Computed example of a mutant assay.
Amino acid sequence: MPESEMSPEPGLESLLPRIVPGLAEQWKGSTPDEISQLERIAGRPLPPFYRWFLSRMGQSMGPLSYSTLDFSVRRILDCYAEGMVEPDPRFLLIAYESDEMMPLHLFYDFKAPARDDALVTKRDALGGELYDMFETLREKLAWDALFSYRVSDMPQQCGGLLEGDEADFLSHLDPVMSGLGFTQPVLTGSLCRLYERSDAAMLCDGVPRARVGNRVAFTLGGSNAETLRRILGAVSMESSLNVLVRKWEPDLR
């Protein structure tokens, strides 16, 4: 591909079609007019990542679609046109939640921009308490895809917490995982890490603005329990991180 035609999101452009069967044939992007309409509602330029997302999946996310969350630009525009959500210089609706029991919709919080993207939070359509999710939509999409199409398919899984002594403590995990043969398909911030190799995948995520200290959750999937033990043992021995395993699926006997 000529440099002038290179994607602004090479990580996701490579990862998603590789792990999600049929995605490249089924995702469908928004029209330039739809993107312009949404940008006028936002009252500001859309984050470059969000423009890429809309251009690829703004009409249909294909097999990546969520069961109750609708990310389509048509649904977003309708919500504003119907007055369900009012334009706000700080928040932009990016996904409509159809679950009536927990009708918390996804919004961008432009008060927290990050890496050509912005923080993803949940809240009621009319406002109220915020429930922060990921520092970027990029990280949310990549985390969810890897969990659904890699980790969940692994015969053995475990989860728990990683603790460190500094704000960017997850950076100490990178050389350990690289030495174990893992790659990082998508670059992330200090609260998130995504690692994969042929027989295993590890996902780490912390809640932005949660003030819970230097601690993040991890989910690890692999071919068997011994593989996972070796990975966690290397992390514990070769880095300064503290590993707390909370659960195994299936349970170990």
Rank of each mutant, 00 (worst) to 15 (best):
F182D: 02
A142G: 05
Q156Y: 12
G159E: 15
G159I: 09
G181F: 00
L170D: 07
L173F: 08
P175I: 15
G164N: 11
K140I: 05
S148V: 08
L170N: 08
S171L: 13
E163T: 10
W143L: 03
A142S: 08
Y131C: 01
Q156T: 12
D144F: 02
P175W: 14
M177V: 04
D168L: 06
D165I: 09
L170G: 09
E139H: 03
E129K: 06
D132N: 04
F182K: 00
L141I: 14
R138E: 01
D153I: 09
F134Q: 02
M154N: 06
E135M: 10
C158V: 12
R150I: 14
T136S: 09
L161V: 12
F147E: 05
G179A: 04
S152V: 03
A167L: 14
F134D: 02
R138V: 01
E139V: 00
Q156F: 13
D153H: 15
P175R: 13
Y149I: 09
L170A: 06
D144M: 06
D165A: 12
G164D: 11
P175K: 14
E163L: 15
S148A: 10
M133N: 07
A142K: 05
L161F: 14
G179H: 00
F169K: 01
S171F: 12
G181K: 00
F134L: 02
L137K: 02
Q156H: 09
G159D: 13
R138Q: 02
G179K: 01
P155W: 15
P175F: 11
L161E: 13
K140P: 03
S148C: 05
D165M: 11
M154S: 09
D165R: 13
D174M: 13
P175L: 13
F134P: 00
E139L: 03
V151H: 09
M133H: 08
F182Q: 01
R138L: 02
P175S: 14
S171V: 12
H172Y: 13
M133P: 00
V151A: 05
R138T: 00
Y149A: 04
E139F: 01
G181V: 03
M177T: 06
D132R: 06
L180K: 05
F147C: 02
